[in-house]
């Protein structure tokens, strides 16, 4: 049995958060990192636009934030570990976020997860 499989072929539906993404998404990720603190989450909710301006988000990032669109945030350089803190403001779980990205309902997404254990 060979255990070493493929090499560097792209993995469909998967985005490596690498140096390129880290440069592109720095402002967005820095804003989301700030959401570790409750006072920052409150400040964001009071005036989203002002908060995005404070962190210097570009238009693509602001649009993704405004639309709560996780895939668009990833395309704009977002890293899921920081984006999860943004999702947390709205009490969205990783299952809600997974359902949104895969175009499923949360129930369908949960079924898909479970089915892979059978």
């Amino acid at each position: 049995m060979t255990l070493v499989t493929h090499h560097d072929l792209p993995i469909p539906g998967t985005y490596m958060f690498d140096g390129h993404a880290a440069m592109k998404g720095y402002a967005l990720n820095k804003m989301c990192f700030s959401f570790n603190k409750a006072e920052n989450r409150e400040e964001f909710l009071k005036d989203e636009d002002a908060y995005c301006t404070k962190f210097g988000l570009n238009d693509e990032q602001r649009k993704a934030i405004k639309e709560r669109n996780v895939l668009a945030m990833i395309h704009a350089g977002g890293c899921i570990y920081y984006l999860a803190k943004f999702a947390g403001i709205f009490h969205l779980t990783v299952q809600d976020v997974g359902a949104q990205q895969t175009g499923m309902t949360v129930e369908e997404f949960k079924k898909k997860l479970k089915a892979q254990g059978e």
């Binding site: 993995i11 469909p12 539906g13 998967t14 985005y15 996780v70 895939l71 990833i74 899921i80 984006l83 999860a84 990783v94 976020v97 997974g98 990205q101 895969t102 997404f109 898909k112 997860l113």
Partner: peptide, 8 residues
């Protein structure tokens, strides 16, 4: 996997 269309 949490992110991308392959989430789940």
């Amino acid at each position: 996997q949490l992110d991308g269309e392959r989430a789940g």
